[in-house]
């Protein structure tokens, strides 16, 4: 992580609000904080920062950062209104400087298996003496599929649906069931494009195949099962749309396969 980006963030927050960097992506740096930006609550909070890009003209860069920060925040607020859909809570938005404060989701998996995103969760059941086909895995993947179904049915796409952008949260310490949350809507959009939906499904399928190839077939089937459940709630209209999306998904998959044979 670049020193001057960190210095900028620390200066912005002042020493009164210490944060720890946890992830750096192409567009954003993500931090955790134990302090809430405006409430006396302590706990764990996420700060997502989009630093300036040097290769862009400063005024264009400022406008673009503002646009993307607002875009992600606005999407989160719209998605919150969809019943059953789980996304992080927006705490604050400083669009001028490119900062978003979000609720922290997930936890550390037991036995050092890492943060509870879908990727690590599946790893946990694939290693040691875990059962990769146990009912918890099946239930969780169906719920993930339902989340994507809710997102797509309501006219939204994620844009970067990898297994790290799905975080699992347990309601209680001893709870065995997990609730998936979709995070990282930096590339998300309001759209009814069948193509974008097909690509969302394809991206997740690829992510599962590449990290959990031995079980990918069953996993993807469960995902699609949960996904379909949502569409099927809406009778014939749902069935028609579901066919459209799954058909396009297969086409996208086929294109991907052709590309990989050529390339």
């Amino acid at each position: 992580m670049s020193e001057d980006v960190l210095a900028k963030v620390y200066e912005y927050l002042t020493p009164g609000l210490p944060v720890v960097p946890i992830a750096q992506g192409a567009e954003a740096v993500v931090f955790t904080s134990e302090k809430h930006p405006y409430l006396p609550n302590s706990g764990k909070f996420i700060l997502k920062y989009r630093p300036p890009k040097r290769y862009r003209h400063p005024s264009i860069d400022k406008a673009l950062t503002k646009h993307r920060t607002i875009g992600e925040a606005r999407l989160l607020t719209k998605l919150f209104l969809i019943e059953g859909l789980k996304v992080p809570k927006l705490i604050a938005c400083d669009a001028y400087n490119g900062y978003l404060w979000l609720e922290f989701l997930g936890e550390e998996l037991p036995h050092g298996k890492g943060f509870s995103n879908l990727k690590n969760f599946l790893w946990m059941y694939a290693t040691d003496d875990g059962d990769p086909y146990c009912s918890i895995v099946e239930e969780t993947l169906k719920k993930v599929g339902q989340q994507i179904g809710l997102l797509h049915w309501n006219g939204y796409c994620h844009g970067d649906l990898t297994s790290s952008n799905i975080v699992l949260s347990r309601s209680g310490k001893n709870e065995t069931s997990w609730q998936p949350y979709l995070i990282d809507f930096g590339l998300g959009s309001t759209t009814d494009s069948v193509e974008d939906k097909g690509v969302d499904l394809y991206v997740l399928e690829r992510a599962i195949i590449s990290t959990h190839s031995a079980h990918a077939e069953a996993y993807n089937e469960w995902l699609l099962k949960g996904f379909s459940e949502i569409y099927k709630r809406y009778g014939d209209a749902g069935e028609v749309k579901l066919k459209e999306v799954t058909k396009r998904f297969q086409e996208v998959r086929l294109r991907g396969r052709k590309r990989s044979m050529i390339g």
């Binding site: 607002i70 606005r74 607020t77 809570k89 927006l90 705490i91 669009a95």
Partner: peptide, 23 residues
């Protein structure tokens, strides 16, 4: 159509509006 089950969900909708107002 927005029928929150818990008070904190209603509050969350207000915070959402406040944070994005005018942007």
């Amino acid at each position: 159509t927005f029928q929150p089950e818990r008070p904190d969900e209603f509050s969350r909708a207000l915070v959402n509006a406040i944070q994005l107002r005018g942007l």
